[in-house]
Design a protein around this nucleic acid. Structure first.
Lengths: 217, 217, 217, 217
DNA sequence: CATGAATGAGGGTTCATTCAT
DNA sequence: GATGAATGAACCCTCATTCAT
């Protein structure tokens, strides 16, 4: 899954000059650092994650970090961007809007939730980046794209499913649905793997009920 | 315990009041410190809250903090206890289990949520104390009572309303409902006060739908 | 043995006015504080002994300490003085210079050492007051009387026993003998009580050999 | 270990020296810090020695200390190790067990004491590291090797000289002899350099007498 | 570019001492 | 006098960041 972190990033800008290689190397380094940050973040949480620990995990010197990032928050921001991309492509794989109108509430919910769940489980550092009261402003800004991308997807799905509902309504609904999943995530990941389906089912029940309510509102 | 301090000093009326006054002063100080901590916590979040900042906010010296608390976590723990009590009494005012069985889903949800919402709005430091992956163990322990108390209330209400549901089911349902509210709280408090009712309504819709689903499951 | 701490201090100045009682109370307080200090010192060592701990042990408030002593060192100084007196009277009981000239080396050594050993064992706080490189100057000065008193006694004994030896020689010899005992004290007190006699015997052997050497020098 | 750091970097000569230089710099820094610690320790004693003072004395920042040592005790431990090595080699220079059996008591004593005396005079920080009741456990452990090494030497010498004595006896004798020297050290170093020989002679007399007693016991 | 030693402002906490009551 | 809350400088240590090599 850490591999994913590099996917979709370094391709597309294949120039053929000397700087290119350096550029490529730089991007690889950035990816390595970000992957290291993800690992440390997953293990320690945001506040207890030190830049030295990230550097050590990435196998480079502390000083080198600052060749690529101006400060700690910027690393987190880059990781957030990476996560946004990863989540986007995870959703891409599952999303197919062609027959959304015919989906049951349960199916709709599955389409929204399952990729999020899978992504959270596969990327344990993800949760350390969630909006929290004491997040530094820079990180808040950096985290925004993730949420925007995610919400955009869900809004798109809801719009297709409920064309009669207002944009504001769906915006709010999408946000709320996502928040519910994220709120339940710690409980899910902390639970015994065998117990997780029970919790997930409960979350889905709530969301399905909500989607149904949205239909008849 | 406090009484004991006064016992055995049978002579002199001022001997009886002096300790009480000091006692009272001590409790007032503790309350002041905790209130100051709540303010700083609300503004800065847990990790960025320094003991010096709490002391300054409370108008005392750093050393004085430690006359009343052994360390930073203990201050947070005391605040958590205070919040637990506040939340309990907020719920007490709203809770009346006598006719719960006749409640509609909407009414049930209101009973659960409204006190929580009001409490969160009134106590902006509350959110800084929520369980997070990188919380110090002492704070985790200190925060537990709040969650337990809250969940206990909600479980009690659900049990009365849905006697046919299993304890495990209701336990999970209660936890999930609370998580939803807490997850939506940042959005609510961050929103323009005029916009809040819309968001709150949406949250309640989701929960009401869930409660209804719980009834017919 | 703590009783001893009060002995020989408060008597001799028995005035009969109002201040007298207060004076007496003050001296009793001082004695209590000093005794408390001795206990804490014995348990914690000099550096780890806090004035608050002494106050608590004495059953008074920190502020009250400073009614009787200007600072921490002064308490230690007073304890040192008390110890000097105690040691003096301990020696008084054992010393009888009338027939010293006829004493064997072993007997001479016993006379010097036994009271010191007994005193050290009985007053576990004594060792915390010994001259050490990091002692505050005030305490150094305060400790001096103990050593002077002790050395004075031993010099007196040696002078009687070895009238032919120069004062400088005996001064040095006395100091050295005392140092040896003090140096061995931690080993003795730390040892299993059953093992102590073996160590003590060894110390005495060394000193006896030295005293004999002093005779034939 | 150090070698390993250089292995696997087969290209480039500067690649081979750079680590060595850095390594060397690190070891020099450690030595500087330890030397600074010795100076501060000599002047202030263990408890009053602050890490900031050591850093200042070493001409570095407080934080830099912790690049090389995990905490204050570890610095002391390193100094203790250094002292142990220094003392060992000081003894090595003076020790030659081949003809110990023929040594007079005086010569035996000289062999034991002279290196210790010289070492103490040359290393004024040494005394601050001696076992005391209130020493932090880490320092106790760190100091142990010094004493063990020293005692081992003396025991070895005594065993060669007095093969008929039991191991327990010699163990005790060695410890006592060392304690005597250490106990007399403050007096010696504090004394006017011109006066020192007199004191030293006296100490040696006592120990010689003891060694003689050991022979005829 | 890479290194990793160096920095130094704070962080939480302690404690001898003071002072209002 | 007695109290104990209050003080605040200082302690040990951390870590994001910089800089000489």
């Amino acid at each position: 899954m850490e591999d994913q972190l590099e996917t979709g990033v370094a391709d597309g800008a294949e120039e053929r000059t000397a700087p290119r290689k350096r550029q490529a190397r730089g991007e690889r380094r950035i990816a390595e650092i970000v992957a290291a940050a993800a690992r440390v973040l997953a293990a320690q949480g945001y506040e207890k994650t030190t830049t030295n620990a990230i550097a050590a995990e990435a196998g480079i010197s502390p000083g080198s970090l600052y060749q690529y990032f101006r400060n700690k928050d910027e690393i987190a921001a880059e990781l957030a961007t990476t996560y946004a991309a990863g989540l986007r492509s995870a959703h891409d794989a599952a999303f197919d809007l062609t027959d959304v109108a015919r989906l049951t509430a349960e199916e709709t919910v599955d389409r929204v939730i399952d990729p999020i769940l899978a992504f959270n489980v596969a990327n344990p550092g993800f949760k350390a980046l969630h909006a929290r009261p004491d997040m530094p402003p820079g990180l808040v800004a950096a985290t925004q794209p993730i949420h925007d991308a995610l919400r955009g997807r869900v809004i798109g799905l809801l719009e297709t499913r409920f064309p009669e509902r207002s944009s504001v309504e769906l915006h709010l609904a999408a946000q709320l649905m996502i928040q519910v999943v994220q709120a339940a995530m710690p409980t899910i990941t902390a639970a015994d793997p065998g117990e997780r389906p029970v919790i997930i089912t409960e979350v889905k029940r709530m969301l399905s009920a909500y989607v149904r309510e949205l239909a008849v509102r």
